[in-house]
Structures are given as structure tokens and as C-alpha cells.
Design a protein around this nucleic acid. Structure first.
Ligand SMILES: [Mg+2]
Ligand SMILES: [Mg+2]
Lengths: 602, 602
DNA sequence: CGAATGTTTATAAACATAAAA
DNA sequence: GATTTTATGTTTATAAACATT
């Protein structure tokens, strides 16, 4: 993440509407936009308690202890069967009350309970030959694959064959992945809407034509029609290019894919790119493949075909499958918002889709004295984005923001950028006559050095905020892992969390023995990483200069996901806990000497 | 460079007008644009011989041997006092004649002669306190530096204080750097024009006002006035952001600079950014600082100030000084072109400055049998871009394109992008009414997935090519070095080439002993760079998967710069030769087992 | 030559966080 | 001291130029 100077490890993110109301009376910057009627009915029970100031009733079995070293921080061990929402509500109230002087950060972990991965929904397990179409035998220079169906109009039934891919033939593997609500909502819309039998291509064309007409005649869209499946096709998926490429590549058995197949896979699974996006999206795909080191180009043995792969050490094995299996119930508020957005006056147009709020995952080491009688187990029932489990302790050093939802998405209407020229002109550079000398007055220049669409546009200042006010939850991790990993095979049965299985607690697949791991460590401890001529991790680490370097914790630790509730800014962040009990385990690296003060700003 | 599949090590670059005419009768794609009158008078002597087909008369002392392993490649050892131009002419003719069947690549190296770095122009060596203004003592939290003069209008005399900075107090260091002619021309214009005493700021404002008027009234610019110093201010320098940032940081003694100082330095040295560029250029600076790993942010001891540094291992110590010292005579044709460009009809506007041709540097290992009686010495007199000497053998593996001239430069008239809206509207998104559904007809969409400005604009197809037809020469290297290096101090006197001094042939500064160097090597030999948890080189290396990994040649080799003349595409590329004589030297790593076939496509 | 593929640079933008007002 | 604004830093998206296959 290239930490800012003294940036706290647990980033304070944008305010996130927690599943419970804000018990505090602070002035809400969000404005009076969101009436309490939008609360989920299932959270009503917890919302009442939150308002009472001091005496929060916690469900039985909850243990709260002060963090050994972190100020104003408490660790809350929650039984798996507890109601997380009410707990968060109570903690929020408590934190609000104490303010900055008392505990205002709560690290939520799970402790005991019935959590032996209770029946997760089993994937449809359809045999998938998808995205394998040009997977030539790599040595047979035979007839080149004939014209693919890329961009070829398909018959009505050939719509996105979602849920078809498997990660390393992931059959028995129950992937418990927590996703951003937004993503899930999007997916829900995708799946529920697109499963109907309609000719998307045809409808899209109608839509386009309709749009062209509108643009030309500048006619108000009658709308009225509820946003149907069209929206799921027309709306851009909430995944970054990097994420989608990973989805695509990881959908294959051999974890490799040609560029053309990546195109096709994305088009098949995200019709937006097939029907709406400008062709420049393929340029962006190529750009991402080149830019990110995690994507490695490999050539088949005969050198005829180039495949894009994900470097094994960086592969989180994310698949769209995993996202689908999460399938939360579609948020009714979402529909409402869509309607609202659709009915907005045309003048308050989009051009920039509001970014999706996210919570971040960060690995946070915790040392408990052995005396603490906390029953910890890796499987957490609280809805945590478990993909974060893939992160190793390296994340503490080179904490790099990771997300699935893109930070910036244009989502502009594909051809509506220059409405004035909508008739004939191609997307041509505006003729600024006279060579490089036509310098307009600086006085009208934007002030900020960070170009902003909103700054020079005071009209309808937050109209776009109405677009997705309810979609505020977590995110998936898509950036490369910081720890060398093995294949993406199904996790051991003993672990309910597939992601944890990718970073086995004992020996990392890429290292034959712990000794090798240790031998390789010292390089990471050097304050000058450039001194080592070793090749880099893909995308991964930067020196992160000012922050003290944290030794890469050996694999002998217990990694557990948790949440951090920061009542100072009403943020709920996902963290990865590295819990150690000094004296219980061997510690050849002396990693337990980590001092929490390292991670505390100031 | 993220080699393309089977990309040759010696890249074929765009046609470069060699210092001699093309002896071949092939159809010139350049068109009849450049009359031979544009030849440099000093090269007239060599140009005559080139036309004769077979019997090329080489100056005495030239040795030509076939490359041990590379097909159709010959190594040409040239005495230092030989006329390189005539040799290139002769070789070109020879290569053209043989075509693809005979030798068509010539590796030019120097052999013996009087080359003891003959008097290079000594830098003005002015004491410079520039760019040190906010260099607080790093521990004195005293009064914060008062308002800086950034963006504050300066009095006429405070224009670019060029040539003031020094690299590590580089006084006695004679930096022999070959630069792109274009860069030099630009610099020449800058220095010769801007040294006059005029109030640039004032004139720029007049200019801007004039421009605004033009944009509003759409009046043809009367021009007529020859492109004076204004152009050097108005024209964007031919350096990428990465290069300019390096210039800035390397101009300081401690090789570190605050962001604000980077801004200021660039504004001072490249008035374009001070007076013309949109404020977004600062965003780009920050983007570059973050994006490129070679730029490392460090915090002062007291944690109060953040400095940007260049990772020592990646620092080529490039300074604008070095570029200035090259100061070629300004090309008369350049002026002519400027005039032409200025007088072009306004409809054929710029929007995209033509990119500058360059030659690349690549390290090329060569093994000579000891029997070959070639007298090699590290100092080469041929005008080679010596910055390439900084590259190590790693470049072969992770050959990454390096350049100073940016690959893409917009160079749009600062505020002329939306002439229609020039009055009131801020750079606002074009109102494409109706949300994400206004999908224009796909039929009119651009075909290529790589957006192109020229494609949808068939009018005046190559008008912009007239802009700088003569500017076709080499480039400087700005990307991070591939070899750990020490400080940027002056080179040892025994070496005339400062860049070579940064990679001493025996022991690299960052390694205390050859043993350390060797110990660190094996990591590079692993076929899976991700398996090593070592931190990465900044920006540097990617797996470059299909190509066989080349062991990092130990420091016991002789690195020499050379040129590769490829008559197949009339390219002249700079290479770094790693010459070894098996049996003569110790080779603990067995690096001599390198087989040239590794680097030969197919 | 043209299209597909691959690499880099530029620019805008969203968003976070720290510093300054 | 809290709030707002600004400066700084990180990422993602998009366009584009150019090289290579
Ligand atoms: Mg890549
Ligand atoms: Mg950086």
C-alpha cells in the first residue's frame, strides 16, 4: 500500500453504514438522505439497544479483553452463534461513549461454537470446458482454432454460463468467501435476471438504437419500466480489470489463458463488455496484463501460443465461482435505488459511477498471554471476507491496498461522451487550433492538481451518491498474495476456509522445509531491498521506508480473520489476525518480538 | 522489457536515419521528405562510399569477425580514431547487399586507439543551492519554511537556473553521455532562447490571453513571428515524468527531494510546466512517484518531512547537467520545421506530439575464443549512449525498455481541449444524458481495441510528422538500472565514461566482496522468481517467462558498450557487451556457459 | 501491409491520509 | 480543539504511441 507516513495499519476508511444504527448523536455528514426505514428488518432487533448509552447487554459467551499493547483497543471474542449485528451495535455505543479516551477500536474475533463449516451451498459442479477452447495441446501445431464465437451474436440460450468454472477442479472444496455486498448484489442481479431466456444481443441493439435516438433528439427517456435484466447487462460489473483477469485465468484447469480467451471469458461473464463497453476495454485488459507483475506470460513448449498465467505465489485463486457461492439475498433497497437513479433527471447524468465502499483487510498481529483462556479456531463465522486469509505477514510490511471493486470506474455511456458530436464525428480530439500555443487563461484552470470531476461541477453535488447508498460492505482481495503459495487445489477438509488452505499454517508449498523459508527470510529484513539482486515479487512489495520492517512471520502462526470496529470514524475494517501465544510454540525467528507500538501511529 | 515471445535481444526499432545515407535502393518509407542537403557536412566524406556495392573500403585497423554463435552477425572492432560514419556506411552497404542470407547485423565495438577520455567540456561548475530550499535539518522542528516561491510569479531574472545542479557534487566528473538529438535540440532552444532577459511570465500571459481570444473568436493566428524563445517555454520538454523526477532528485546533494521541491525544480527547469501545463501535471508527478518502485519515499529522522529518493540500486544518476554537457549544435533544419509547423493550417493541429525515435541499449554477451586477437578496452570512442553502461547482465533476462523520451506525450494545448466550451464550462464530462444506457450504435465504434487518434481522423494523415522530421537520434536511459550500484560520485579518473564507473568491472559497490555478490546470485537463477520472498528491484524485473534465464554474470567480466547495426531494418541500437574469453579468467559461476542460441529467436 | 498482441507513458480520477488553515 | 481545506500518496481506468509477431 505504500503506506503514508505514519499511516495506521488499520486504515480508516470512508464511513460505512454499519449493520446497526449509529448510536452517536454526531452530525451526520451524509445528510438526511437515508431515512431509518431503509434499515434491514433483520437488524431491527439490534438497533434498539444501540441507543442506550452505557449498559450494553452482550450475548453470553462474549469475552472482551484489552489488547496487550494497542491503546484504546479491545479484543472481542465472539461465539460463532452470537449475533454479530447486536454485538457491533453494542460495541459502537460503548465506543462512542468513551470517545477517544476510552476503547474505541474493537477487534472482533470468533471463539468456539459450532462452526465446523456447516453445510455451505455446494456449487452446481457442472463440467466446464469453458475457457479451454484454445487450450491447444501446447505442442500440436495442428490447425489453428477456427474462428471463435467472440463477438459473434449468440443464440438466446448462450448467455453467461456463470458458475461453470472451477478452480483446480474445485469440486469438494467449499469456498467460503465473503464478498462485498455490492458485488453480490450485482451478481444477484446478473444471475437472476440474465437466466431468463431473452436475446440479449438483440435487446441491446434496440437499446442502443433507442439511445442513439435519444442522444440525437435529446428526448427525455420515458423510463417507467423497472430496471430489468437489461441493467445487469448494461451495468458495469464492480470488478476491476485485474480481478476479472484473475477470474478468467483461474477458471481454467491449468491456470493459464490466452489473451483472446480472456477477452471471451470476460465477455461471456460480464455482458457489459460484450455489448456496451467501448473496444478500448480490451486495451485496458492488455494494459493490466502487462502492468501487473502478477500476470506472467508464458509460451507453450512449441513456442506457438502465448498464455497468460498468474504467478503462483501471487495467485489468490479467486474465481467468480467463489463470489457466486456467497449469494446474499438481493437487497430490496438496491432495487429502490436503481429506480431512483433511473428516474433522475437526465441532466444529473452519471459519467462516473460512485465507487463502492469497501473495508480493507490487514494483517494484525496479536499476542495473547497464555493465561488468556480464549478458544480460538481458524474458522470464523462472522461474515468476514475470507480472501484476506491469503495474506501473509508480509502485508504488514508491504501493506498494499487490495480490493476487488475498482477504485475508479468510468462507466460512461459508451458513445455518449460527446453528445454534441453524436451524429457524425468519431471520438476525435477536439480541434484546438493553432498548435501548442492556444493556452487558455490560467484563471479558469482547475485549481487542484488532482483533476476532479466534481470540483468544477457544483450542480447536483451528490446526485450520484443516491446511486448506491445501501451497497456498503466489504470487498474481495484481488491483489497478489504476499506469501509464496502452492497450487489452488481444494483446501484440506479440516479447514473450512479455502483461502486459509492456500497458506498452510506449517510449511509453504514453495519451500521444501522451514529451513528454506528461514534462509530466504533475511533478505526481507534488509532495510535496503534493492541491495538484493533477487527478482521481485509480482506487484508486491515496496520498501515502505519509514515504517519499521516487520519480520515475515513464519508459517507456524495462527491466522484468523477478524473485524476491527473503529468507533472514532465509524469504520468497520477487515483484518487478518496473526495470533501467537508466546511460550506455547516454537519461534525460531523470534517473530514474537514484534512490538505493537510499531504499528500504532505516533 | 517483458520480452515478447521470442523477441530478439537486439530490438529492431523504428528506422533511424543513420549518419550515412542508405546505400540500398529499397523504397524509402520515409518518403522523399528529407533531401540529402540535410546531411551533416562532417559526414559528407563517408557518404560517397556507401553506394558502391561490394568492395567496401574500411579504414585500416578494422577487424571483422563472425560472431561465435549469432547467425548473420559480425563483430566489427573499430579503432578509436576511425571514422564511425564511414564504417557504418560501409557496413550498411555490405549488409544490404547480402540481405537476410548474409551478415546483416554488425556489432560495433572499439579496439585500441587513443581514447584516454580526451578533454570533455567541463561543466560550468556553479555552486548550487538550488532545490535544497526545504531541506530542513531533518531534526530541527523549528519554524517551518516560509511560503515558497512555487507558482509565485518571479522577477524576470529568475528564470531557469539550468546547469546549476550537481550530481554528488559532480565537479571533476566528466560525464560522457550520449543523448537524443531531439533532447539536445530542445535544450539548445531552451538555453539559447531563455537566457535572454524577458519577463516570461508576462509574455506567457499575453500569449494565453491571445490564445483565449483566438479560441473564442476562432481567428487564424497571424503568426509570422518566428518561433522565438516562447516556443521553448511553450513546448513540452522531451522528457518523461520519470526522467524529470530523476533529474530533479539527482540534482541535490543528498539525492532526495520533497514533492514540492520536485514540482518547483521541474517548473524552474521546464517552464512549460510552470506556465502552460494544466495543473494535472502535478498529479502525474505524484502518480509517477507512486507507480515506479525506483522512487522511494523516505521520512526524515524526526518523521516530519517526507523525501522522495531514488533507490540507489536503480539510480542512473541522470541529471539535466549531463544532458547539457552534450550540447550539440542546433540543427538548422529544426528551426525550419518549427516554422513549418507553426504555419500549418490550424485544422491540422497537434494534440499528439510525434514521438522521438530512439535507440535502445541492451547487454549482449559475447564470447571470443582466446585466439581472436582483438584488443578490447572499456573506453569506446564511438558516440554511444553511455548511460547504457549502467546496465548489468540482468538486462538480458529482464530486458526492459528504457528511454528518456516519453513514449506518449499529449502536448495538447493546455486549455484548448474543449474549444466549444472555452468560455465558462470547466473541463466537465460531456453530458451524456440518460445514465449508462445511451449506447450508441456499435457500428460507428472504433474497430481497433487500441484507441487511436489517427484512425478516426483521416484528414491530414501525417501532418504532424512534419513537426520534427529531423529529430531522429538516440535517447538517454532513465529507467532504473538492473545492477546494484553505489553512490553517484564522480567516476575514477582511469575511466573516461562515468557510467561505466558506476558499474566497476570488479566489485560492485553494494557488495562488500565478490563472495557476497556470488552468494546473492543464486536467487536470480531460480526459474521462479516468485518463490523467493526477497523484496523486488524497483520497477525492474519480471519473470520474462519463456526466455531462458541467464545467470547474472559476475563482476569479473568486461563490459563494453557497442552498437548493433541491423541492416535488415536500418536500425542502429546501442548494446552493452559482456565480453568474455573462456579460459582466460576464473569463472566460479560458470557463466561462460552462456549459449548465444539462447538469445537468438527461433 | 494489417491485425493481434505486448509494453510504456500520459492523463484523469477516486479516494485515502496527513498536514495546514 | 474540532472542522474544513489542502497537500500528499495510492490505485484504477482510459487513451495512446509504438514495438513485435
Ligand atoms: Mg505482467
Ligand atoms: Mg514509488
Amino acid at each position: 500500500m505504500k503506506t503514508s507516513p505514519r499511516r495506521p495499519l488499520i486504515l480508516k476508511r470512508r464511513k460505512v453504514p454499519l449493520p446497526v444504527q449509529n448510536a452517536s448523536g454526531e452530525t451526520s455528514k451524509e445528510g438526511p438522505k437515508r431515512p431509518p426505514a431503509q434499515q434491514e428488518p433483520s437488524q431491527a432487533q439490534a438497533s434498539t439497544k444501540a441507543t442506550e448509552s452505557n449498559s450494553c447487554k452482550f450475548p453470553a459467551g462474549i469475552k472482551i479483553i484489552d489488547h496487550p499493547t494497542m491503546p484504546n483497543t479491545q479484543v472481542v471474542a465472539i461465539p460463532n452463534n452470537a449475533d454479530l449485528n447486536s454485538i457491533i451495535a453494542a460495541l459502537t455505543a460503548r465506543g462512542k461513549e468513551s470517545g477517544s479516551s476510552g476503547p474505541n477500536k474493537f477487534i472482533l474475533i470468533s471463539c468456539g461454537g459450532s462452526s465446523a463449516h456447516p453445510g455451505r451451498p455446494q456449487p452446481p459442479a457442472q463440467a466446464s470446458s469453458d475457457a479451454q477452447r484454445t487450450e491447444v495441446p501446447a505442442d500440436t501445431p495442428g490447425p489453428k482454432p477456427v474462428a471463435r464465437d467472440v463477438n459473434v451474436p449468440r443464440s438466446p440460450g448462450t448467455l453467461p454460463r456463470l458458475k461453470q468454472e472451477s478452480c483446480a477442479g474445485g469440486e469438494a472444496a467449499g469456498y467460503a468467501l465473503e464478498n462485498s455486498l455490492t458485488n453480490i448484489q450485482w451478481l444477484g442481479k446478473m444471475s437472476s435476471d440474465s437466466l431468463g431466456s431473452c436475446n440479449i444481443k438483440q435487446e441491446m441493439q434496440e437499446k442502443e438504437n433507442c439511445h442513439l435516438e435519444q442522444s440525437q433528439v435529446k428526448v427525455e427517456e420515458p423510463t417507467g419500466a423497472p430496471p430489468s435484466w437489461r441493467d445487469s447487462v448494461a451495468e458495469r460489473p464492480p470488478y476491476s480489470y485485474m480481478a476479472m483477469i484473475q477470474f478468467a485465468i483461474n477458471s481454467t484447469e491449468r491456470k493459464r489463458m490466452t489473451l483472446k480467451d480472456i477477452y471471451t471469458w470476460i465477455e461471456d461473464h460480464f455482458p457489459y463488455f460484450k455489448h456496451i463497453a467501448k473496444p478500448g476495454w480490451k486495451n485496458s485488459i492488455r494494459h493490466n496484463l502487462s502492468l501487473h507483475d502478477m500476470f506472467v506470460r508464458e509460451t507453450s513448449a512449441n513456442g506457438k501460443v502465448s498464455f497468460w498465467t498468474i504467478h503462483p505465489s501471487a495467485n489468490r485463486c479467486l474465481t467468480l465461482d467463489q463470489v457466486f457461492k456467497q449469494q446474499k439475498r438481493p437487497n430490496p433497497e438496491f432495487r429502490r435505488n436503481v429506480t431512483i437513479k433511473t428516474e433522475l433527471p437526465l441532466g444529473t447524468r452519471r459519467k462516473m459511477k460512485p465507487l463502492l465502499p469497501r473495508v480493507s483487510s490487514y494483517l494484525v498481529p496479536i499476542q495473547f498471554p497464555v493465561s488468556q483462556s480464549l478458544v480460538l479456531q481458524p474458522s470464523v463465522k462472522v461474515p468476514l471476507p475470507l480472501a484476506a486469509s491469503l495474506m501473509s505477514s508480509e502485508l504488514v510490511r508491504h501493506s498494499k491496498r487490495v480490493r476487488i471493486a475498482p477504485k475508479k470506474q468510468h462507466l460512461r455511456a459508451p458513445r455518449g461522451d460527446e453528445p454534441e458530436l453524436v451524429f457524425a464525428e468519431p471520438p476525435e480530439p477536439q480541434p484546438a487550433d493553432g498548435g501548442p500555443f492556444q493556452t487558455p487563461v490560467k484563471e479558469t484552470l482547475p485549481i487542484s492538481s488532482t483533476p476532479s470531476k466534481s470540483a468544477p461541477l457544483p450542480s447536483t453535488p451528490e446526485a450520484w451518491r443516491l446511486a448506491s447508498p445501501a451497497a456498503k460492505v466489504g470487498e474481495l482481495e484481488v491483489s497478489p498474495v504476499r506469501t509464496p503459495r502452492g497450487t489452488c487445489g481444494p483446501p484440506p477438509d479440516s479447514l473450512g476456509l479455502v483461502e486459509l488452505s492456500c497458506t498452510p499454517p506449517k510449511s509453504l508449498p514453495l519451500f521444501g522445509s522451514p529451513r528454506e523459508l528461514l534462509d530466504a527470510q533475511p533478505l526481507e529484513l534488509t532495510p535496503d531491498p534493492f541491495g538484493s539482486p533477487a527478482p521481485p515479487h509480482p506487484d508486491v512489495p515496496r520498501p515502505a521506508s519509514p515504517e519499521p520492517q516487520v519480520p515475515n512471520l513464519a508459517a507456524s502462526r495462527s491466522l484468523t480473520e477478524g473485524l476491527v470496529l473503529d468507533t472514532m470514524n465509524d469504520s468497520l475494517s477487515k483484518i487478518l489476525l496473526d495470533i501467537s501465544f508466546p511460550g506455547l510454540d516454537e519461534d525460531p525467528l523470534g517473530a514474537d518480538n514484534i512490538n505493537w507500538s510499531q504499528f500504532i501511529p505516533e
